[in-house]
């Protein structure tokens, strides 16, 4: 069974139709890259799946649980859907680290707040907090930042900040991790370290959806590529199929990268 299923998602802002019926599914452990020119709706699609924007129509399920369904309007049911969102994580283009917290605190904050809602929090406070610290350090070590635990975001390079934000998302143990142009705010040198981190995650069989402009990387790391244009999916397939496509629009797009 597919771990992510997106069905007929449309999104309009006023009269502008940004998404015109997007459907796709993704198998567990696979990596999907979404590519396409600016304004094609890639980021909007990601935002709709993560709940930052509300799609106009459609349905999204993660791990068999519904996270969005435009037919559901009942408040209690909507709350239920919101809970299911815990299964997905998102890494932003601009990192969006919390500037007033250290590297470690950035990763532990959400976990600590969640722990406070547990019934046994008061009784086992110390154990729980130790566990959270351990988890955070584990993931920060994974992205190669165990020596930066006590630094603030302003003391880190862009690449390091993005790696903290990846660790922050991973620490909540999402079933799927989404990346919204994770390297677009970085120079080529720093881009490399982020791509290396994502590649490692792919080797660990992390299910990921990556919106990217890095063609070589997409070719290299993806199991599946979706090409979006003007609010629709106009091509999909394995990297091989995609990069050898005879679709006119895709060829045109790829040529613009070779210049």
């Amino acid at each position: 069974m597919a771990i992510l299923e997106v069905k007929d998602i449309t999104k309009s802002f006023g009269k502008a139709k940004i998404l015109k019926g997007i459907s796709f599914s993704l198998e567990e452990g696979n990596v999907l890259s979404i590519i396409g020119s600016s304004g094609s709706g890639k980021t909007t699609l990601l935002r709709c799946i993560n709940g930052l924007d509300t799609a106009t129509t459609g349905k999204i399920t993660v791990n068999g649980q519904t996270v969005f369904d435009s037919d559901i309007t009942d408040k209690n049911q909507l709350k239920e859907l919101n809970k299911n969102k815990q299964n997905i994580g998102l890494v932003f283009q601009q990192f969006n680290l919390f500037p007033q917290y250290t590297t470690l605190e950035n990763v532990t904050l959400a976990m600590k707040l969640q722990a406070k809602r547990r019934d046994d929090y008061k009784k086992k406070r110390k154990e729980i907090l130790d566990e959270i610290d351990k988890t955070a350090k584990y993931f920060l070590d994974k992205v190669g930042l165990s020596d930066k635990l006590d630094l603030y975001p302003c003391q880190l390079s862009g690449g390091q900040q993005q790696r903290v934000s990846i660790a922050r998302a991973l620490a909540l143990r999402p079933k799927i991790l989404f990346f919204d142009e994770p390297t677009s705010a970085l120079d080529p040198e720093l881009t490399g370290e982020i791509l290396k981190t994502i590649r490692q995650l792919a080797e660990d069989n992390m299910t990921m959806v990556i919106v990217t402009h890095e063609m070589n990387f997409a070719k290299d790391v993806s199991d599946q590529i979706i090409f979006m244009d003007n609010g629709i999916i106009c091509g999909r397939g394995t990297p091989d199929e995609f990069f050898n496509s005879d679709n006119e629009r895709i060829r045109q797009f790829l040529q613009s990268y070779q210049k």
């Binding site: 930052l52 932003f92 969006n96 959400a110 707040l113 934000s165 998302a169 909540l172």
Partner: peptide, 14 residues
């Protein structure tokens, strides 16, 4: 405060 701060909090389940 940049909107991204709230969005980050939201996707982290706060």
């Amino acid at each position: 405060v940049p909107i991204g701060q709230q969005e980050a909090g939201y996707v982290l389940g706060m």
